[in-house]
């Protein structure tokens, strides 16, 4: 089973203050390649869970296993390296560094991870083909400044960045919340296509249930989170 596990969470407890847990998850298993929609109202601890899964924070109790690594017992340094190598991240907004051009923005993870650089082969070429696959062909041919892109286009560039070098896991924190409904569906179609193609495990966090039809599985955070119900 372990070689097919992307994410395995057990007996997880996390709170900003010890007596007020924000998250309390008995068990969560996500197999490799699955595209999961994680629904939760704002303030329900979605972002905290993503930070825990991304290795930016440590739980007070419990285990977090990503791929074949138990992350919660490892050092901050190891988790940062692991994230660089195996995890792509998509934010709600402002994903791009305004002082880098599109290609440099997309190849950014390859600067921090030699593994992803290797997998990408030629990072610039990989970035171009990803941008093309995400419908940004015209910007490859006629480069523009990062700030001149629309929000929808920026999010697609960010998706290309999250996908370059084929990380096994992609964590997305409401990347469509700033988009209108047409470009939202277009973006999600492209994203899930790419994830399918690269066998990427996608954890997509949002409060908007109308998007759930794009995903293999829908998890409601309030159902798996037993905070306060000790």
């Amino acid at each position: 089973m372990t070689d097919t596990t992307a994410i395995e969470v057990q007996q997880l407890r996390f709170g900003w203050k010890p007596d007020q847990p924000v998250l309390q998850i008995e068990h969560l298993h996500i197999p490799k390649g699955q595209q999961v929609f994680l629904r939760g109202a704002s303030g329900s601890g979605k972002s905290t869970l993503l930070n825990l899964l991304g290795g930016l924070m440590s739980p007070q109790q419990g285990q977090i296993q990503l791929l074949d690594q138990l992350l919660n017992t490892r050092s901050q340094r190891f988790r940062d390296r692991f994230r660089a190598d195996h995890i792509g991240v998509l934010f709600q907004q402002f994903n791009l560094l305004p002082y880098l051009n599109l290609i440099d923005n997309v190849t950014l993870p390859c600067r921090f991870s030699s593994l992803r650089r290797q997998r990408a082969g030629n990072p610039e070429a990989a970035a171009e083909s990803l941008l093309q696959a995400l419908g940004l062909q015209s910007f490859v041919e006629h480069p523009v400044k990062t700030a001149e892109l629309s929000i929808g286009q920026q999010q697609r560039v960010a998706a290309a960045r999250a996908l370059i070098g084929q990380p096994e896991i992609l964590l997305a924190d409401e990347p469509t919340s700033a988009l209108d409904s047409d470009s939202r569906d277009q973006f999600l179609t492209l994203l899930s296509q790419q994830c399918q193609q690269h066998q990427t495990t996608l954890v997509f966090v949002s409060h908007d249930l109308s998007l759930s039809h794009h995903f293999d599985r829908v998890i409601d955070l309030s159902e798996i989170n037993h905070k306060g119900a000790v």
Binding site: G54, Q76, D80, A84, V89, L97, F112
Partner: peptide
Amino acid sequence: RRELAVLRAVGASP
């Protein structure tokens, strides 16, 4: 702060 968060996300250590 956003720029730093992006760098953190792609694997920059503190």
